[in-house]
Design a protein around this nucleic acid. Structure first.
Lengths: 228, 228
DNA sequence: CGTGATCTAGGACCTTTGTCCTATATGTTG
DNA sequence: CAACATATAGGACAAAGGTCCTAGATCACG
């Protein structure tokens, strides 16, 4: 949230000020993505935004406020993307499902996503606000999946559809560290997208509630669990 | 790596010293897991190990060395687990595959895993050594999967088996943030484990190279991609 | 033009942190 | 016991970082 000094409101947000705030948030995002959270310092952000610490602290009186606005702004960008895709009325549910999977996996390869999300996950472990923002963006993502899955499998209870959405969404996120921007397996991104589309589509098409509750069936010996 | 002063070798590692190093590494891991990387300071580690910074710096002259030993030690623990399971000769390949999936998902719920890995992922983005350790542990994990997949699907080319191992391994890691220790969906861990076992088993049993290369087949309209 | 709001630079400050040094303590070994 | 390696505490030091303050610059507008 913009700085609120006792005597000044940020209601104004004059054009110059808005531009400065935008530059600050972009600079902050770049620092976070390119150098990591420990290097996200007021001075580093100010330098990258071509201003001084003194000026930065005119807009953001403390680091916490800056981090809040930064997370909010970045998360908001992703939220808008999800909604746009999930609502594409020109596609069948199965097509929309595959669109979502491929869009998300494709997005993992961008420098911003590969750099931002691992930082967010780590931050969310010990920062209440980051945890909330993370919760928010993934709720939107799962909801997008859940709507499409509902169209594909109206027979499944809502609880099971939500679980499928959770599983698919989480599975896709997990690819980040491996096929993300400049990662070891980034050349496999295309094949992984194909496997993911195939695997998740088959899963949603074919699974039944019994399997989710762990009642074994098709072609397997009864599962004797490992001693943990 | 233990401190090597010019005049002293660490070849000795006397019993008292070994104990101190163990206490330091445990303390460091706890700080990282419970408070996050930014709070992993020499003083915090020393406090938790019930010693002074001066004494800590006798064992670790700098933070980088401490971080190296910490990551190495934690990673080594996981590596040993994977090998133990993948080599269990009493189980069929499909059983071993399911064992691996369920073991990994089960492990996500531990405080150590839920806290350590997100920190490692973020660290690996900008720290060469962390990237190497992360690469190492996942190589072992994928290799465990790849061996079992080879037994299940000897007909598939090695390249495809490796891709399946990558996809499965990454998908499981992605569950961490959601069903991990004290996470929003941790109560769904059991159902997610069932879905994962079902989904990944079906995938490995049924996929063919054509699907991995993106040649559409079963029951779908040809894929017109989204404009990115 | 001039007056008030907005913006900016520069620096001061205090705390945290990594690193280092020295004086003791503790243990081991001849 | 004497001598030596090992271990520990306590503090010093500089660098980095978050925060704050003040003096100007810039700008909108009457």
């Amino acid at each position: 949230m913009r700085k609120l000094k006792p005597q000044k409101r940020d209601n104004s947000a004059s054009p110059r000020g808005q531009q400065a705030v935008a530059a600050i948030l972009t600079a902050a995002r770049d620092v976070l993505v390119e150098e990591g959270y420990p290097r996200l310092t007021m001075r580093n952000v100010a330098d990258r935004a071509d201003m001084t610490v003194g000026n930065l602290s005119y807009y953001y009186a403390n680091k916490e406020d800056l981090l809040h606005d930064l997370l909010e702004a970045v998360i908001q960008g992703y939220v808008e993307d999800f909604d746009r895709i999930a609502e594409n009325a020109e596609r069948t549910p199965e097509e929309r499902f595959e669109d979502l999977v491929r869009f998300l996996i494709n997005d993992l390869s961008t420098k911003e996503t590969t750099g931002f999300f691992p930082a967010l996950w780590a931050l969310a472990c010990h920062n209440e606000f980051a945890a909330g923002e993370m919760s928010h963006v993934y709720e939107i993502e799962r909801d997008a999946f859940a709507r499409v899955i509902t169209a594909m499998r109206p027979d499944l209870p809502k609880k099971d559809r939500d679980l499928l959405a959770l599983f698919v969404s989480a599975s896709i996120e997990g690819q980040t560290m491996f096929i993300g921007h400049r990662r070891e397996k980034s050349s496999a991104a295309g094949a992984i997208a194909n496997i993911a589309a195939h695997s998740f589509l088959s899963l949603v098409r074919g699974i039944d509630s019994a399997a989710i509750r762990g009642l074994r069936i098709a072609g397997k010996s009864g599962s004797k669990r490992l001693a943990s």
